[in-house]
Design a protein around this nucleic acid. Structure first.
Lengths: 155, 155
DNA sequence: TCATGATGGTTCGAGTTTGAACAACCGGAG
DNA sequence: CTCCGGTTGTTCAAACTCGAACCATCATGA
């Protein structure tokens, strides 16, 4: 294994800050979603993915692949959303094993009702805290990161 | 509430990328910690904070305040770490209610055993994916974010 | 001194996540 | 057609998280 090149203070600080910021932002968003609409963050994610998909439909596996949770976690969340009437399950036409999740009109309405507040929150917590220069730099870095992480999604 | 200023594509992409990157990185780190040392990420966090503290000791509340989990969550984790012999509890000298958590020698040894691998991983997943310019930009942005989030920790 | 409100930590229950096990099914090679 | 490895989604037990309730204690002021 050998000695790696240790992290200098700035590197460590940035790394830990990055993680910490993600954690805090996640938590704040979650809090607001819960209070406003009774949605957990995973549930909100599911709805958003579905809304963006053609016909508001997506296979379970595709849904899970969207960086969310495990298959079992998705199963659970979709069940919750189904109980709430925001999503429906139907079996896939071309594959009997398959299940397609569909967002309902209530689901879309729920998303609409949260959207404005959500955007406001993202501005407050994230964008407003950054100068244009900082945002540009962060956007660039994040872009590179996401690309790299997606590329090495399986190792 | 009124209509907020909507997010343009670049803003949305950056925001979602930021969250997604955090989630993925967290998960990968967690995976490795679990495999290598049988530690969860929260547990690792606790050990790191304790190791950095003078005498390797910290009050429970201070520990929880370090952006980790809730008080109850911390209680649970410290109990787990105690069972594993990596941390000890003792009551506080100046406040009978208080509890001080202390990292044991085994705890320090455990951290040492993970450190090298951990650093390697951070380089692989995070630092190596960024050019110097990108890192600088991201570091700047993250710094501003963390500062802002800490400042508004209570609203 | 004695109330009174705030604080420190644990414990409890409900909800959630995860990986493993499972049953059903697909699709290609032979 | 028939295997057979790989896929799909659910279910299960175990672990984890959170907030609320709780008791004990502190600190302040009358």
């Amino acid at each position: 294994m050998g000695e790696p090149e240790w992290l200098d203070e700035h590197e460590l600080e940035t790394w830990e800050g990055f993680l910490a910021a993600g954690t805090i932002l996640n938590r704040r968003i979650e809090q607001h979603l819960k209070d406003e609409a009774g949605l957990s963050h995973p549930q909100y994610e599911v709805l958003v993915r579905l809304e963006r998909a053609p016909d508001g439909e997506l296979r379970m596996t595709e849904l899970a692949g969207a960086a969310l949770t495990s298959k079992s976690g998705l199963s659970y969340q979709v069940t919750q959303l189904e109980k709430a009437g925001l999503v429906r399950r139907r079996s896939c036409d071309t594959d009997i094993r398959g299940v397609v999740a569909t967002i309902t009109d209530e689901g879309r309405a729920k998303l609409d009702s949260v959207a404005s507040r959500y955007v406001t929150l993202v501005r407050e917590l994230f964008l407003d805290g950054l100068t244009n220069r900082q945002f540009a730099g962060l956007a660039d870095g994040v872009g590179a990161l996401v690309e790299r992480l997606r590329a090495t999604a399986d190792d």
